[in-house]
Amino acid sequence: MSKKSNEHVLPPAAEAARYLENARQILTEKAGKKDGLYADVKYVKMAAGTAYSAALLILDEYLKQKEGINFTKPKSIEDYTNRLRKHDKKLLRLLVNVYDELHIVGYYHGTRSVEIIQTGLANVTQMLTYI
């Protein structure tokens, strides 16, 4: 890694917030909205994937804080849920909702529903308060 790239490393909360802002920007500038639906599914999928990545960054940092030197990066959604179950049930519920809203419905299925995507973004924003 070059010296220049090291200078731009953000703290995990700031990096997750940046991802979330990027997702919102994609939706605002590219997805187009009419009658409660997004016009371009391609950009909804892109934004949903970006916001879900923010959620994973948050969870990784949260688990690092809780598990300390025993932390290893989770390898699956089941690993995340099993480990969160030991620490915080509310954060676990947020993860389950974000997984459904952004990862499955938003990214994989490509929903056009503004309501579902906005709910997912709001849940990731709540997750940010944990780190």
Rank of each mutant, 00 (worst) to 15 (best):
E29C: 04
Y130F: 14
V44P: 13
A17G: 08
E101C: 09
A54G: 09
T28N: 06
K4V: 13
R18H: 02
R112G: 04
Y62S: 00
N22S: 09
N6C: 07
L10T: 11
T81N: 02
K3L: 15
L84T: 02
V9L: 12
E115Y: 08
Q25C: 03
A54R: 04
Q25T: 13
L102R: 05
A48E: 10
T50E: 13
A54P: 14
M46H: 07
L102A: 03
I131L: 08
T125Y: 10
V124W: 08
D88G: 10
L84Q: 01
Y43D: 12
G120N: 05
E61M: 00
V96M: 14
T129S: 13
L95P: 05
L84F: 01
I131F: 05
L95W: 12
L20K: 01
L59Y: 02
D88K: 10
K73H: 11
I117P: 07
N123V: 07
Y80L: 06
G49F: 15
A48Q: 12
G106S: 08
R83E: 06
M46I: 09
Y43L: 10
V105C: 00
H8C: 09
V44S: 02
K45L: 01
H8G: 06
S2N: 08
R18A: 02
H109M: 01
G110D: 05
Y38I: 04
Y80R: 00
L27V: 09
T129N: 14
G68W: 15
K89Y: 11
S2W: 06
A31E: 09
K73T: 15
S53T: 12
A14K: 13
D100E: 15
H109P: 00
R24W: 05
A47Q: 05
K73Y: 10
N82E: 12
A31D: 11
S113N: 07
K75Q: 11
K89P: 07
L91M: 11
R112Q: 10
Y52A: 04
D35I: 02
T50H: 06
D35M: 03
L121K: 00
K86W: 14
T72D: 13
L37I: 00
H87I: 01
P11M: 02
Q126A: 03
V114F: 04
K64P: 08
K66P: 02
A13M: 05
Q118I: 10
K45Q: 14
E67W: 08
I58E: 00
G49I: 13
L20N: 01
G36R: 13
M1R: 06
Q25S: 07
M1S: 09
K66Y: 02
T111H: 00
G32F: 04
T81Q: 11
K4E: 14
G68M: 14
K66T: 00
S2F: 06
L59W: 03
E115A: 09
T125W: 09
K34Y: 10
Q65L: 08
K73E: 15
G49R: 11
A54T: 07
E61Q: 00
K86G: 11
A23D: 02
K42N: 08
N97S: 15
S76L: 13
A54V: 11
Y130K: 10
D88A: 07
H87Q: 07
D100H: 10
D60V: 07
H87C: 00
I131W: 01
E15D: 05
V105Q: 01
T72I: 15
M127W: 01
R24G: 04
